[in-house]
Design a protein around this nucleic acid. Structure first.
Lengths: 116, 116
DNA sequence: TAATATACTTAGCTATACAAAGTATATGAG
DNA sequence: CTCATATACTTTGTATAGCTAAGTATATTA
């Protein structure tokens, strides 16, 4: 375990990040892990054992849906995840919550400023 | 439970915020709860049952120390918490971790920008 | 005297990031 | 052809931490 705080500080944001990455187009697990890594500049390096439970959770909450790729050729079967209408509505709400907490944190950390 | 995500997103930051509030001067529990509420503009509304475990944890890690107030007059006895040297060193590190994660999150959420 | 604010403690619940192990297929090096 | 590696998904178990709730106790004020 590199950093005890790091692990805790990531809690709650993975769902939001996955939802954000799926906003553009359906993607499969491995792809999400790669994009997460690249786009965050190595900050979010997820193991598959971390990502998939997030996906199952979001699916249970009806924020995303999945379907197996209609395997053209002899590709490894992939499960594509797609954001639902409900997910598209929910994402901005989650992001607002995140911004409010981040803002509140900054207000305490940087005492003299009250803007972000 | 108001917001499932909110609860998770606060994880890991409470320790940092308490440490930050103690950086100036020793404070007691109730005082920390009030300051947390005011400075964060109502974002961090802690119950005492949430704060004290944070304090015990920080004390176990030697990042803060506590002592009962030498009750002058007939005041309710208060336990004052003071940041240690170790705590002063650790705080900037924790803050850096937080900023890195926050930055990484923003990079994914706001795709076209790569500055904070 | 009673209600309220202050002040600290502890037990139990729930959610989630992560590690690790397991299954299985495609591809490229030798 | 074989073997290592990358791809791809699943499941189990662990540790941590925010929160609720209940309990104890003192000071202040109506």
């Amino acid at each position: 375990m590199d950093n005890k705080y790091e692990r805790q500080m990531k809690k709650g944001v993975l769902d939001m990040l996955v939802l954000r990455l799926l906003e553009d187009e359906p993607k499969y697990g491995y792809q999400l892990i790669q994009e997460m890594k690249e786009k965050s500049r190595e900050t979010f390096l997820l193991k598959d054992g971390t990502l998939y439970p997030v996906l199952y959770r979001l699916e249970d909450e009806k924020l995303i849906e999945s379907r197996w790729s209609s395997a053209e050729g002899k590709q490894v079967p992939r499960k594509y995840y797609e954001i639902t209408e409900q997910g598209r509505k929910k994402l901005p709400e989650i992001f607002e919550t995140w911004k409010r907490i981040t803002d509140g944190t900054l207000k305490i950390m940087e005492k003299e400023r009250w803007f972000i």
